[in-house]
Amino acid sequence: MSVRVVVADDHAVVREGLRALLGAVEGYTIVGTAATGREAVRAAVTLRPDVLVLDINMPDGSGIEAARKVTREAPGVAVLMLTMFDDDDSVFAAMRAGALGYVLKGADPEDIIRAISGVAAGNAVFGPGIAQRAIAYLSGPRPPDTPFESLTPREREVLDLIAAGLGNTAIAARLRVSPNTVANHISSVFAKLQVASRAEAIIKARDAGLGH
């Protein structure tokens, strides 16, 4: 019986690359693709694949948010995160959102195929370098929920200061980093929160209790 897979990534080259990879291996069928977080959720709910392969950095809703919705609305679909993000916050946020597996995009094709097969069978699968952190996380006490789980601690700190009304220069002075570093953090925050302006970011942050 073939493992039915939906691939969700905002880069067409990744989607087509996985289609070609799985198409060359017996026992796997790509039943759909998605380019945004919203499309990923829709495909998982309507197509009910065995596995949803999902990136973290997605337009129209992050992969973390999409994983959480899929876990809730289509619990029979196993979520495998395939991403470039290897920081602890991203890994643990994905796990809290219900992802069964977490593999980096630089993994060997054989490792990606094994990961898809593993989560389809209901197993937790983590790529090299991720496994030890996942074990430590699973064996330790559950951390409290925090807003904007896809953000790193530094990005959340920057967002908190933005919500408090500080400009880039003031934030740089407060954190003792360069204004360029602050600007880079802000660009990453905007991408992860799917906002286009500082005002939108402030509204979201203050609604979540930041900036006070």
Rank of each mutant, 00 (worst) to 15 (best):
G76A: 09
E65K: 12
M84C: 08
L47N: 10
E73P: 06
M84I: 12
M58T: 01
T71L: 04
M58D: 01
A94P: 07
A78S: 15
F85G: 03
G63T: 05
A97V: 04
G61C: 08
V77K: 04
G63L: 03
A43P: 00
L80D: 07
L80I: 02
D89I: 08
E73C: 10
G61K: 04
M95I: 15
A93S: 12
A94F: 09
L54F: 05
A43C: 02
A99H: 05
T83F: 13
F92E: 15
L52P: 07
I56S: 04
T71K: 14
N57W: 02
D55F: 00
S62A: 12
M84H: 10
D88C: 10
S62V: 07
F85Y: 15
M58S: 00
V70S: 06
K69V: 12
G61A: 07
D86G: 13
A97K: 05
R96C: 07
S90F: 05
V51A: 00
M95N: 08
A97R: 06
V51H: 07
T46Y: 07
A43I: 00
V53N: 08
K69P: 03
V45W: 01
F92S: 11
L54C: 02
A97G: 06
D55N: 05
R48I: 00
K69S: 13
S90G: 06
F92A: 11
D87E: 15
F92V: 15
S62K: 08
L54I: 00
